[in-house]
Each structure stands twice: as structure tokens, then as C-alpha cells.
Amino acid sequence: MTATTAPEAKLQVLPRADGSAKFSSAGYTVIGSVNGPIEAQRRDEHAYEAHVDVIVRPAAGVGGTRERHLESILQSSLAQLILVKNFPRHLIQIVLQVEETPENDYANAKLVQASLNFPILPALLQTAVLALLSASVPMRATATASFVAVLSQDGTNKVVVDPPPRDIETARSVHVLAFTSHDELLLAESEGDFTVKEWDDVYDTAKRICCQSGGAKTGIEMELDDAGDNGLDMRRFLRSAVETKVEADLHWK
């Protein structure tokens, strides 16, 4: 399976949840549902803000510490976006079900012990944001995320966006960066050896993917843009996914 597939999203795929979304990108497919604001259990209740509950479920096997780790990262990022102070003593429940992860044809994976990791984090975050939008949960801003790896090829380091699973194994370092719609850095997780210079490169690459202005570009700017890494623009993608849904919903008007 080729890993460089364009992102795809569909909103409101589950009839019973308040909001739901299906997102697939780079071989990952995640389906997410949001229920909320609903009544919180006594132990989760905060007196001044809503409790954001994130549940990550792997496609095969039971979740372990890795899933709990991803949950905690997502929980703290999403709590920044959602206007939690508006709903004291409430719960906003986000369930993210992984459907497919890209397979490495050159190795037999150990599947029963589920092991999700960093590469899936952008897909999870993007699904959560789309599902929250679909559930009309009030948010401060939306967010876009990207996965960037630094590969060392013939002695030179190369910054690659969404590399295939085989390259991730040999990458020197992998990074997950997310930005809000106000161009603020929301999440930065890194793994491996890297220098400050490399991180700056990664930051610039990720920012280009996540924070393009989205408007139509003209002349030389457009040409330069097309020459960049496959013109991936997460913000425009997010906007168009929601626009398509709204258009379909308001078709009767």
C-alpha cells in the first residue's frame, strides 16, 4: 500500500453519536465519535470546567500503556481547544477507533499486543477535531497536525512528511507537530536524536503544511508553492471537509 495517499474525511458517519467523523491519511483510517456535553460521573466531575475524556481503541488487540499515553497527549491538547469553562460539571467524550494502519510488507507485525505510536497521532488529532466540529462543540480554534521524520540518506539528512512505515523504522528522529488555526503551536512531540537546526527545519516544514493561509495564491507564489512538498495543505483540507458537509446539509434551502 502506498503511504502517500491524500487525506480524506467524511463527517457525521454514525447516526447515533452527537458528532462523528471518519478520516484517512497516509494509510491510517480512524473513525471518531463525540458525545457531549453530557452528564459527568461523580469522579470525573470538575466544578469549574468540562471534563474531556479521550478514548483511543486499537483495531486489533486491547489497548495498553501506549494508547493511554496517546490519550493523555490528545486530552491535554483538545482541552486547550474546547471551551471547557462553558460547561462546568459536564463531560465531553471523544472515542477514537483506529480502523486501519499501514502494514509493513517486509516484516511480520506482532498484532495481538497492540502498539500504536507517534505516526498515528496526527490522524487521531485530526479525526477528533473533525468530530468535534461535527458535534458543534464550541471551540476556541481548530487544529491541524502533521507527521514529519528526519531521514539520513547517504550521509545527508532529509526532512520527509508522512514517510512509509519502513522509513519510520530507520528514521533518525520523528516529530508530530500541531498548530491551531491562529498559527500557534499546539503540540510538539519528538522521538530520536536531532539537533536544534533540524528541529527548526521540521518546524518550518510542519508549519507550511498546517498553516497555509488557504486563500487562492497567484503568480510566482503559486508556482513556488507547487514546487514544495506535494502541496499538502491541512487547513484548506479541514475547511473543505466541513464546507462539503454544510453544503450537503443545506441542500434543501
Partner: peptide, 10 residues
């Protein structure tokens, strides 16, 4: 393995 998650119903 069958598990009904909160996705099914809260």
C-alpha cells in the same frame, strides 16, 4: 473479542 465502546452509546 467483542467490546462495546462508548462510541456505540455513552
Amino acid at each position: 473479542a467483542t467490546e462495546l465502546s462508548p462510541m456505540t452509546a455513552p
